[in-house]
Amino acid sequence: MRATDISDQITTTLVTEEQIQEKLREIAAQVAADYEGKDLLLVGVLKGAVMVMADFARALPYVVPMDWMAVSSYGSGTKSSGVVQIRKDLDTDLHDRHVLIVEDIIDSGLTLSWLLENFESRGAASVEVFALLRKPDAAKVHVDCRYIGFDIPNEFVIGYGLDYDERYRNVRDVAVLAPHVYS
């Protein structure tokens, strides 16, 4: 199925690819200034953050190491279960590193809250968060997020790394998935 053939599966485009790229360049410039001279490590959360991490890292003006962690709190549904499972741990020792977690989206905040505590317990010098998207109305816990791309409504969204049942990740924009697709 071609990405252009999904118009009947989405209701609204919330953020275009062009808006995303512009925001990533803006935040990368801010991160570069904030972390100048520091031992920065980008940590992406698989699988959703792959697109964000790739484009964000390329927007940074210097070489920066990346690591990946896979955690799950969803299962196959559309709502977070709140129970975090590590599916792939980091390969990098976080001790005395300045960690920037790169997230596609903050929904309930439960997984991210757990990650922040976990990374701090590993002796990181600092742990901050960059999330491309945030759903303020979905938050179950408050998470301090240093860099936010866009606040979006509490709708089920796909595209730019976000999926439903492992589909739609390669859609270039962020769009609301039509309820008939997942109900």
Rank of each mutant, 00 (worst) to 15 (best):
M1Y: 10
R2G: 14
T4G: 11
T4W: 09
T4V: 11
T4P: 00
T4H: 10
D5G: 14
D5A: 15
D5Q: 14
D5Y: 07
S7H: 11
D8W: 03
T11P: 03
T13H: 05
L14R: 10
L14Y: 03
E17L: 12
E17V: 07
E18F: 07
E22V: 13
L24C: 04
R25H: 09
I27V: 15
A28E: 05
A28T: 02
A29F: 00
V31D: 04
Y35P: 03
Y35T: 06
E36D: 13
E36N: 11
G37P: 09
K38G: 02
K38F: 01
L41Q: 07
L42A: 08
L42Y: 06
V43G: 04
V43R: 04
V43D: 03
V45C: 06
G48L: 10
V50C: 12
V50A: 14
M53A: 13
M53L: 15
D55N: 14
D55E: 13
D55W: 07
A57H: 12
R58Q: 08
A59S: 15
L60C: 08
L60T: 04
V63N: 08
V64F: 06
P65S: 13
D67G: 08
W68G: 06
W68E: 01
A70R: 14
S73W: 02
Y74M: 07
G77S: 10
T78F: 04
K79S: 13
K79R: 15
S81W: 01
S81D: 05
G82T: 12
G82K: 13
V83G: 01
V83W: 00
V83T: 14
V84S: 02
V84W: 03
V84Q: 01
V84K: 07
Q85P: 01
Q85I: 10
I86F: 09
D91Q: 14
D91W: 02
D91P: 00
H95M: 11
D96K: 14
D96P: 02
H98M: 05
V99K: 09
V99G: 06
L100H: 08
E103F: 08
D104S: 07
D104I: 01
I106K: 05
I106M: 06
S108L: 03
T111I: 10
L112M: 15
L112A: 08
S113A: 13
L116P: 00
L116F: 05
L116W: 01
N118L: 12
N118V: 00
E120F: 08
S121I: 04
R122K: 15
R122D: 05
G123Q: 09
A124I: 09
A124M: 07
S126H: 07
S126I: 02
V127G: 07
V129W: 09
F130L: 12
F130P: 00
L132H: 06
L133I: 02
R134K: 14
K135Y: 00
P136G: 05
D137E: 15
A138P: 03
K140G: 12
H142L: 09
H142Q: 13
V143E: 05
Y147Q: 08
I148R: 10
D151S: 13
I152V: 13
P153Y: 05
N154F: 02
N154H: 09
E155H: 11
V157K: 01
G159W: 04
Y160M: 06
Y160V: 01
L162D: 11
Y168C: 09
R169H: 10
R169G: 10
V171A: 09
V171C: 11
V171Q: 11
D173K: 10
V174T: 05
A175I: 00
A178N: 14
P179L: 02
P179E: 14
H180L: 01
V181Q: 02
V181K: 00
